[in-house]
Design a protein around this nucleic acid. Structure first.
Lengths: 256, 256
DNA sequence: GACTGTATGTTAAAAACATCACAACTATCA
DNA sequence: TGATAGTTGTGATGTTTTTAACATACAGTC
């Protein structure tokens, strides 16, 4: 059995079991633990798995998400976590909520309250996977073509499904927030989805860490006026904060 | 910091990282190894995580899938794996394939060839998650309401999207296979989806281990005649095997 | 104040695992 | 055939983790 074969089988095994001991693998492939060791060190160099004392853990992240997403995940993580925790604190029993794509959306999904029944509508595969694991949760995923970089599922039919669902709260993320030029995102197709999400909800909540402020991206999908609640961190400039506070019927939360 | 706080933070950490070493956790929470050890043993007793040498792994399964699915996963696993491996061996470069829901479908998704470009259409969330991790793979997920027991996404819009996609191969699973009463499934909504999948493909491939044979479930969605290829294991009865072989234009693979 | 139970930290020995160097094996090519 | 490079197994040695026993701290109770 060649090294390539072995690494393939190790991957297969990990895809099913997510982790393995060196013993297990050595026994399965009928080779010595040293061989396994050498195989897994090369696999770990490629980022496929992570070696810990006594075994290995499969590393979804290595291949799962586009490069961008994994970058977004670690950037401003602290602030994003705090924003997400604030966001989920607004959720009430029997709420129907829309969770937008993006790393902040993923954190909201992660921190969703366990104990109260809610309905969730989403269109990003990573978020769907997280929400599906929750008890007390009705889940609708609008389908479509899978975009690797944002993990969004996009199609006319999905958009239609989104338009026909109603939510009382929508947590919308953005790539750029500008008091003058409005809320923007990077991709064309996200515009339509975010726009539809905004139209389908009663209370619209913008979740964006301070690094997104004073940034302008090509896809304009809303203005600050269109949001009822804005959650960000204390890193935003005085001007932004003042400009938002000057608007009527708007709640601004700055965490951190 | 109380024990409850700590276990909550361990859970949060694992939700994001899926695994952790004892060192990591001890450092993060600034307590001794022994405290973490005691925390994780109580968490593992609750089934939240799994302790391995040197660390812990988050146990999605505890909360993720309906009872049924996890049962289906372990039942006839060997045969299912062999069937899945046979199934993926039929895939050629640039194929467009439909993968049906179910544990065998999940295994097919797992074993999908890495090195050739293919397109995949699916409607089960677990399968979507697996396929999304592949390189060289265009993915379409038909969306809809999430059914926990089968992990299928179902909606009229999703069905529409499925009908509008074309595949040259569809790998269809079944809960019951009878030479006289045809191919059946358990749920009403699955019928429509499986039927649509069959209509949208050139070559239809039935993947069903021998435990499904001579079983009849309420939802009839096709007859054996409707399939071009049947992949099962050597456990099926002589009569079944003979009856299928007697049909024209049909290929039967029995693995194991 | 002494008692009790729970939660946490410390320590040391035992067990499990990792690493290293070297020998044995395999395949390839001249 | 023999040289070479690459791969794999073995056993001695070093390291980390586990376990268990004991020490400490703190809150509630008699």
């Amino acid at each position: 059995m060649t090294k390539t074969e072995r690494t393939e089988r190790i991957r297969d095994y990990l895809r099913i079991n997510t982790s393995a001991t060196i013993q297990e693998l050595a026994q399965m492939l009928d080779v010595s633990h040293m061989t396994i060791r050498r195989d897994i060190t090369s696999l770990s160099e490629k980022g496929v798995l992570r070696i810990i004392h006594g075994g290995v853990i499969f590393n979804d992240d290595g291949h799962t998400d586009g490069y961008r997403m994994s970058l977004a995940r670690t950037n401003m993580l602290d602030e994003k976590q705090q924003i997400a925790r604030k966001a989920v604190s607004l959720i009430e029993p029997n709420d129907s909520i829309i969770i937008d794509a993006g790393s902040t959306g993923e954190l909201i999904a992660t921190f969703l309250p366990q104990d109260i029944p809610i309905s969730v509508i989403c269109y990003a595969l990573n978020i769907a996977s997280i929400v599906a694991q929750r008890p007390n949760c009705t889940l609708v995923v609008t389908g479509g073509y899978y975009h690797e970089s944002s993990m969004v599922l996009e199609s006319p039919e999905g958009l239609e499904l989104l338009k026909q669902n109603r939510a009382n709260k929508a947590f919308i993320t953005a790539s750029g927030v500008s008091t003058s030029l409005g809320i923007t995102c990077s991709n064309f197709f996200e515009r339509a989805i975010k726009h539809a999400a905004l139209k389908s909800c009663r209370t619209s909540i913008l979740v964006a860490d301070s690094s997104k402020f004073d940034i302008i991206k090509p896809g304009h999908f809303a203005d600050i006026e269109d949001f009822d609640v804005i959650i960000t961190d204390t890193g935003i400039s005085e001007e932004c904060s003042a400009a938002i506070r000057a608007m009527e019927h708007k709640r601004l939360f700055t965490v951190g």
